[in-house]
Design a protein around this nucleic acid. Structure first.
Length: 869
RNA sequence: GGGCGGUUAGCUCAGUGGGAGAGCGCUUCCUUGACACGGAAGAGGUCGUAAGUUCAAUCCUUACACCGCCCACCA
């Protein structure tokens, strides 16, 4: 067989993936007889494309699912797609704008139709990218959050929560996104630092004498029109006399507002006096509630000044920022502006649109969060949900402890419409269907005339029930029985409260059980310089480009290898993908060597009897077993970085660098075909979760059982013979080989030239032969030396020029003297001997003894060199 | 303002209360029965700064500096 010298992923990956999918290897049915291992894939946005963030969270899911499938568990990875209301609607609105249309021109029905069409056309794109990455979810079970079945589950949950008193409609201060033209929840805000201005404005005591008054600091003069009070701290002596008085509200001077005292005021900031605008600021809203203040609005849903509640003079209709500028001008003109200073502060933006969010009073639907949060907190504290790394548990608990009611109604058309209807006189009717609503309305209010609430639900509402809605809930399916709760949830840290906490809350409420046992927080991906990847910086890396250049396996390895369990960030280096490609090439060529053995490979695969095994065989088998144990442990602990590193070390530094070379020795030829194929077969199985394609390609080419590595068994360490002594002996050989190689290099010997070495006769022939082969030496026998293999190998004497050898011995003497010096100082220290742990002292003595005898030996050799016998 | 993470070789990062490690990069040599996407041998670090605890600190404690993440109603 003629295999190319270079591994070509493009020739392998699409072929293997098509076969896996065609043969249904990723598909699984619920089977109570086996332990379940289920991961539900966080559904990517229907508008989404694969990015490095997906690679760092989804690759580990694929690794875990493949690993547990090989363990024989009832393993399934459940994929899906999220309808991503805000993102999708934004795309559609943009499209419409290009056609010169608005959403309203189309009408709700046609708009939603178009959204469906768009989703069907473009929604599959990310799935194709996932296939190229080698991800193996159970595609047959893929779900879309807008599927009829999942929509029904959403309605059921809403109605149930309503009947449980956990959903209500009310007028509250909400976050309005003027660009997205919808409310957004607190969790969807991003607080961004901006340079702004802090204006000091004088509110005069009397209209007639505008010079005397109270000075107030504000960053938002445009909201002044809706001021209803000035607040100061109750203990602030500067203003104690003023509490209870009133001032006129500039610039219109049409209303007088009271000066009140409230604890929320920080006396040290600004002037210590703050204007209170309950309808347009969260803190002020709280103050307004405490003091039963009126709450007029002056900014409307179009983010411009509205005259709905109070007279706003000529400002009416001005955009919020234009109004700000105009009011500042007017204040200045009329001497109410005391100062204007630069001020860096944070503003709340919508993380979707990036627009500055406007706090507004509005009638919306809310989920009462506290009663749902308490069990979610308890579940974490009792350990029913674990979070890795543990420190993120604090993020989870702190958010739940300070939770606010969740605004779930959105003014979008694409999404799950609220299952809420209103009677002509404003009674609300909540039901799973219109028919049910009519029946309820008839009974309760004697009317069948209902209007449906036009709003849709927050996308995260449907995401929150994903862990059970995808399993068929509310029907009592076998999937639900076997696969809930799932095993593990992998996600980025920013998702903890946006999604993880909500899934736990809703899962506990509806399923009476947490949705997953472990939450693994994966690192954020940055570029090599530690900068966030962003389009504006031009440092985005498209995973598909890397797959194209290096292959999916190499890309996966490059990501996994850079993951650290405790790390919160990962600086992705493309050079790692290149290294990983080289690694795959190494695997490929080792395979070529094995397949080209003149003696052929044994079929079926069998291992020679222990007595027939060579030292190298026994060593590599022992290392294999150790590697299996380590890999299982690392994967069980979600330590993907060290797992990848472990495979790298075993395959490259143990198997290829040493064992494969050792099999070229005459003495190793009888057993090598069997051991090489046995070990390589097992190594490919260990590698498979990490690098699914090349492991399959190689495994299929070797002697194997079964039709695919995907469903092959994970190696059982107990079936791999282990030889304790072999590890130590082989390590001694390695050190000896390295010593000779070093001398060769110092001599400037050409690799083909052999160096003569004298090896004591009590070094076993097998080891002497390996030494000759691996170090490029011609071995001659010399007198046996006393002691074990250690001493015998130490007495190996290369016949190289004397001065070179002497130089080397001198170096060795210096090193040993240094070590001995350090050891002696330590042991001469009475405090060390008295206080250090006895085993530490004993170890130190042993080390010192070893160095001393080494020194004696080297010095003797040196003396002999000067005066040859 | 609060919480958290990081600071170790030129770069990206492991690591340990008792002899500083990997990969890449760099230097030198080399196409030897798989592999130049390779092999062999090397050079390279006062483990951020300062105190403290300890027989012993890169590792534990504290403070500080710098970088970063998250949360927050200082207008």
């Amino acid at each position: 067989m003629d295999l190319p010298k270079q591994y070509d992923p493009k020739a392998v990956e699409p072929r293997l993936y098509a076969r896996w999918e065609r043969n249904g290897y990723f598909h699984e049915e619920p089977d109570p007889a086996r332990p379940p291992f289920v991961i539900f894939m966080p559904p990517p946005n229907v508008t989404g494309r694969a990015h490095l963030g997906h690679a760092s969270t989804y690759t580990p899911m694929d690794v875990l699912t493949r690993y547990h499938r090989m363990l024989g568990e009832n393993a399934d990875w459940l994929p899906g797609v999220d309808h991503a209301a805000i993102a999708t609607e934004a795309v559609l609105v943009r499209e419409l704008r290009r056609e010169g249309l608005r959403r309203e021109d189309l009408g709700r029905e046609r708009f939603v139709e178009r959204a469906w069409e768009w989703s069907r056309t473009y929604g599959g794109a990310i799935d194709e990218q996932f296939r190229r990455l080698g991800f193996g979810p159970d595609w047959q079970r893929s779900r879309f959050t807008m599927d009829e079945h999942l929509s029904a589950a959403v309605r059921r949950v809403f109605v149930q929560l309503y009947r449980d008193g956990l959903i209500y409609r009310g007028t509250r201060l909400i976050n309005w996104d003027p660009t997205g033209k919808t409310t957004v929840s607190d969790a969807e805000l991003e607080h961004v630092e901006r340079d702004g201005t802090l204006w000091r404005v004088r509110y005069p005591f009397s209209k007639e004498e505008p010079t005397a008054g109270i000075d107030v600091a504000t960053t938002r003069p445009e909201t002044m029109l809706a001021d209803v009070a000035i607040a100061v701290h109750p203990n602030d002596s500067r203003y104690a006399d003023l509490i209870g008085r009133s001032v006129w509200l500039p610039p219109l001077l049409e209303r007088a507002i009271p000066i009140i005292a409230d604890d929320a005021v920080d006396p040290d900031f600004g002037t210590g006096a703050v204007k209170v605008t309950p309808a347009h600021d969260p803190t002020d809203y709280e103050i307004g509630l405490r003091h039963r203040l009126p709450m007029p609005s002056v900014i409307g849903f179009d983010a411009s000044i509205t005259s709905a509640d109070v007279n706003v003079g000529s400002y009416t209709g001005l955009d919020r920022f234009a109004a700000r500028a105009q009011i500042v001008d007017d204040l200045r003109a009329r001497s109410f502006l005391v100062a204007a200073e630069p001020h860096r502060h944070t503003v709340a933006t919508s993380e979707r649109s990036g627009d500055i969010v406007e706090p507004l009073l509005s009638l919306q639907w809310f989920v009462k969060a506290a009663p749902l949060a308490a069990p979610a907190l308890e579940a974490y504290r009792s350990g029913r949900v674990r979070i890795v790394p543990e420190r993120y548990g604090r993020t989870y608990t702190q958010w739940l402890e300070n939770i606010h009611d969740w605004n779930v109604s959105r003014q979008l058309w694409w999404g799950h419409q609220l299952p809420v209807w209103y009677t002509p006189d404003g009674h609300e009717v909540v039901a799973e269907s219109e028919a049910e609503a009519i029946e309820l309305a008839q009974r309760a209010y004697g009317t069948r005339d209902l209007t449906r609430d036009p709003d849709t639900l927050d996308t995260w509402f449907s995401s929150g029930i994903w862990p059970f809605s995808i399993l068929g809930w509310p029907a009592e399916t076998a999937e639900l029985r076997c696969w809930y709760p799932s095993a593990v949830m992998l996600t980025g840290g920013e998702i903890i409260f946006l999604w993880v906490a909500r899934m736990v809350m809703l899962g506990l409420h509806f399923m009476r059980e947490v949705p997953f046992r472990d939450v693994v927080i994966t690192p954020l991906v940055f570029d090599e310089a530690g900068r966030k990847m962003s389009k504006s910086l031009g440092n985005m890396i498209d995973p598909m480009d890397l797959v194209e250049k290096y292959g999916a396996d190499a890309f996966r390895i490059s990501v996994l290898r850079q993951m650290r369990l405790e790390s919160q960030e990962m600086r992705y280096q493309e050079s790692r993908a290149e290294e990983a490609r080289n690694f795959n090439n190494k695997i490929w060529n080792a395979t070529r060597f094995i397949l080209a053995l003149p003696e052929g490979l044994p079929q079926p695969m069998t291992l020679p009897s222990p007595a027939a095994l060579t030292l190298a065989d026994r060593w590599i088998l022992t290392r294999l077993r150790e590697t299996v144990v380590q890999m299982s442990d690392l994967l069980n602990r979600f330590d993907f970085g060290n797992a990848s590193e472990t495979m790298w070390r075993f395959i490259w530094y143990a198997f290829c660098d040493w064992y494969l070379e050792a099999t070229k020795a005459e003495g190793n030829r009888a057993t090598r075909a069997a051991v090489l194929s046995y070990v390589w077969n097992a190594a490919m199985r260990l590698l498979h979760p990490i690098a699914p394609f090349i492991s399959e390609e190689v495994w299929l080419a070797l002697p194997h059982d079964g039709e695919t590595i995907v469903t092959a068994n994970w190696p059982d360490p107990l079936e791999i013979p282990v030889f304790e002594d072999a590890a130590g002996e082989f390590a001694l050989l390695q050190r000896s080989v390295e010593k000779v190689r070093n001398l060769r290099s110092e001599m400037g010997l050409h690799p083909r030239e052999r160096v003569d070495v004298d090896v004591p006769t009590n070094v076993p022939d097998e080891i002497a032969e390996l030494l000759g082969l691996l170090a490029g030496a011609s071995v001659a026998s010399c007198a046996a030396v006393e002691g074990g293999l250690d001493e015998a190998l130490a007495a190996v004497r290369p016949n190289v020029p004397r001065d070179l050898l002497a130089q080397r011995y001198h170096k060795e003497v210096a090193r040993l003297r240094n070590e001995i010096d350090r050891g002696e100082k330590k042991l001469d220290n009475a405090a060390f001997v008295a206080k250090a742990a006895p085993d530490v002292v004993a170890k130190e003595r042993e080390k010192l003894g070893g160095y001393r005898s080494d020194l004696v030996r080297v010095e003797a050799a040196l003396a002999e060199l000067k005066e040859p016998a």
